[in-house]
């Protein structure tokens, strides 16, 4: 039994204190999720707000059969997808044949970077790339699930992921070079 079930029960009784506690418990993690999906801080804030409103309104639908965090995370991801779908910012059209291969050694640069920096690099990716990358790599969705959720083909999902990784590697290299330069100057 999840240790947060009691908190959810209290929230279901409109306990303001419990609602605050639940928010404080997961807001940090969920804001990081929102920042990964969004292109800027304000958009991430909007997604977080909408997501938590959905969480509190849908608490009665929580089945008490899984982790509370996982449930809230799924709601956040869906909220982010809905947000960009409404804003027509999801452009995932590239076919798998056109995928470029990511440069090798990007993991090396990545491991040296702070999480905030990585998020900043991810935020620079196109919305479609960013979404697929987040869903596949960090949320563990399969290409089939991604294709269903985004309304695209599995092939497109795969190509988007490959492109996202290639672009990410390039950007990481650039930021590493910049970082190296700044180190040398210093």
């Amino acid at each position: 039994m999840d240790q947060h079930y009691a908190l959810v029960y209290k929230c279901l009784q409109n306990d303001r204190k419990a609602q605050s506690e639940l928010y404080q418990l997961f807001a940090g993690k969920m804001f990081a999720v929102c920042m990964r999906y969004a292109s800027d801080y304000d958009t991430a804030s909007d997604i977080l707000q909408d997501g938590f409103v959905k969480v509190f309104n849908a608490l009665s639908k929580f089945g008490f059969d899984g982790s509370v965090e996982g449930w809230i995370r799924r709601i956040m991801v869906n909220t982010a997808i809905d947000y960009f779908r409404k804003a027509s910012k999801l452009h995932v059209m590239t076919d798998i044949d056109e995928v470029e291969v990511a440069d090798s050694g990007s993991d090396h640069f990545l491991s040296k970077m702070a999480s905030e920096e990585i998020i900043a690099v991810i935020q620079k990716l196109p919305q479609g790339y960013r979404t697929v990358l987040n869903m596949y790599v960090l949320e563990d969705y399969s290409h089939k699930e991604i294709s269903e959720m985004l309304g695209i083909s599995e092939g497109t999902s795969k190509s988007q992921l490959a492109r996202a990784k290639a672009l990410l590697a390039t950007q990481l290299k650039n930021s590493e070079l910049g970082y190296g330069r700044s180190e040398k100057i210093r």
Binding site: G28, K29, M35, R36, L48, A102, L110, S111, S115, I118
Partner: peptide, 25 residues
């Protein structure tokens, strides 16, 4: 790359905007 991304970002937390909870409530 996937592994490093997961390690760096999976459980990463960021401070949410202040006063957001009041707006949510």
């Amino acid at each position: 790359l996937d592994k490093v991304l997961r390690a760096k970002l999976k459980d990463f937390e960021m401070a949410p905007p202040p006063m957001l909870f009041d707006q949510i409530i």
